[in-house]
């Protein structure tokens, strides 16, 4: 054993997550985060930009000969109705991202609000919110998603996102509540109260900064979950029939027996895109976790 002087200082530095700009810098230096970000941007942005440069005429069904393998005109082949799979992808990816964005934002913001209110103010409100959190957590959300999606006939991309977001708040709410409960016992909350800060100010300026990295990681997680939930529902035939998402691409390819007809480019394209999106977002999430929770970096 070596004698360590100024022990509290060293211990403190070890358990402190980097703050503010330092946080972003160490985030970018994190290998998982960087790789994840690069893959994600590549997969997500190419279709978004390509969409603008595509001639609207090529979006029609029958714009290309049907069931063609990848060629110069249709880089990813064409499907059974003569649409270019590549053109479909440029519509599907932004739509799927939109679902993820709306649902994750909704879930994270709602969850954070519920968690903060429940944890900080306590009392009867807390009891009520805690019970509803537990109820939402214990029923399998997928089942209710299927139920709702089946009953809301003719969903759009946006309503799909809202339905998914409706089930995305309970987990962050529970985590935020638990964190707030432990944070509010810390001395600085009392000091802030004695310094004249109001409850809302304490939540925003004293507690929120501690939660931000976690909320960021949760947002990414919810983003993946929402994209995958959309795909799952769409594959079951409950997706937005009139629009194109990654899930709907798989649904249509299944519907027209792409596998049986050996039109591999049709179903492999959305499947690979989905896997890459999910994988890259998970890496980003991991990076977030490692940077905001230095204990996780201990591993060699």
């Amino acid at each position: 054993m070596t004698v360590v002087t100024g022990q509290d200082q060293i211990a403190a530095e070890e358990t402190q997550a980097p703050k503010g700009r330092g946080f972003i810098r160490s985030l970018l230096r994190n290998r998982n985060f960087a790789i994840g970000l690069i893959i994600f941007l590549t997969v997500a942005l190419i279709p978004v930009f390509a969409r603008m440069s595509i001639d609207p005429a090529t979006r029609r069904t029958g714009a290309f000969p049907a069931r063609q393998p990848p060629s110069a005109e249709a880089p990813l082949g064409t499907e059974a109705l003569g649409q270019s799979v590549y053109v479909q992808l440029t519509e599907a990816v932004p739509n799927s991202l939109q679902v993820g964005l709306i649902a994750a934002t909704m879930g994270t913001v709602l969850g954070a609000i519920v968690g903060f209110v429940s944890g900080y103010f306590g009392g009867a409100v807390d009891t009520l919110l805690r019970i509803s959190i537990d109820v939402f957590l214990s029923v399998p959300s997928l089942l209710f998603l299927v139920l709702i999606a089946a009953l809301v006939r003719g969903v759009s991309v946006q309503s799909m996102a809202l339905i998914i977001g409706l089930f995305a708040w309970a987990w962050p709410a529970r985590q935020v509540r638990a964190q707030v409960l432990s944070l509010k016992e810390r001395g600085f909350v009392e000091i802030a109260r004695l310094s004249g800060m109001s409850g809302l100010e304490i939540v925003f300026f004293e507690l929120m900064p501690h939660m931000l990295p976690w909320l960021g990681a949760n947002f990414v997680n919810a983003f993946i979950a929402a994209i995958l939930a959309e795909a799952g529902l769409s594959i079951l035939g409950l997706g937005p029939q009139g629009e194109m998402t990654l899930g709907m691409m798989i649904y249509w390819s299944n519907n027209y027996s792409a596998m049986l007809l050996d039109l591999w480019w049709w179903w492999v394209t959305p499947v690979v895109t989905l896997i890459l999106l999910s994988f890259s977002l998970y890496l980003i999430h991991l990076g977030f976790d490692e940077v905001s929770n230095p204990r996780m970096r201990a591993e060699g």
Partner: peptide, 20 residues
């Protein structure tokens, strides 16, 4: 208070407790 570490929000510089 008793705990001089917990009294500070580790997120901010020490100026914060004086500024508020």
């Amino acid at each position: 208070f008793q705990d001089p570490f917990a009294s500070f929000n580790p997120f901010y510089k020490v100026d914060h407790v004086l500024e508020v």
